[in-house]
Amino acid sequence: MTRTLIALIKRDLNLAWRQGGGALLGTVFFAVAVVLFPLGVGPEPNTLARIAAGVLWVAALLAAVVSLDRLFEADHDDGSLDGLALLPLPFSLVVAAKCLAHWLASLLPVVIISPFLGLMMRLEGDALVALVLALLLGTPGLSFIGAIGAALAVGLRRAGALLSLLVLPLYIPALIFGVAAVEAARMGLDPAPHLMLLFGVTLFAVVIGTAAATAALKFDLE
């Protein structure tokens, strides 16, 4: 069973990388979105450091939403979702594996480049560490909550704008706790309690996201 799941994740990762680097597009989007802020707000270091956590987190949420439409769309269009439903393992595990693959392909790169963009936004020392930790603990939840929207909007025309309306309000707790962790570290406080709340949000997202996305896709397959 584990082997099937790993094979499934590998397959999704291969697909994500093969489509002309489609997976990296979200990451590039993240970088460009962050770079726009110093150009819009001005390069004053204190201002940038003050807004850095919020800007980086909002850009990460948007990068997640932008990459969501590919989560189930391709498998739905070519009918391989039906095949996946027939695998000898619970369909919810298949859905969870696809969410995990989405995180690995689309959001882990965002976490990896985030310290560089954090430096450009004048975050330093502990705040920078807190930022990377917060994104690492928080972004998996974005994939799982986002899967609900992606599953509900699968097969719809113009799913993109609809997806952002469905998913972004549900991202608010992750945004609030994630930014709070970075801000606490920037003020010289301990970010650990915020990170734990954030991780709690992520765990909740894994449970609810898997269950709801599975239900939505099952109805779609019927």
């Binding site: 309000p169 549900l170 709801a212």
Partner: peptide
């Protein structure tokens, strides 16, 4: 109707968490 029902339930279980996070923010 089915898609809407799933979304409404997801929203409903998320409301307390969103409310808590906003109060706390």
């Amino acid at each position: 109707v089915r898609a809407g029902a799933i979304l409404a339930l997801v929203g409903f279980v998320n409301i307390p968490i969103i409310k808590f996070s906003v109060d706390w923010w």
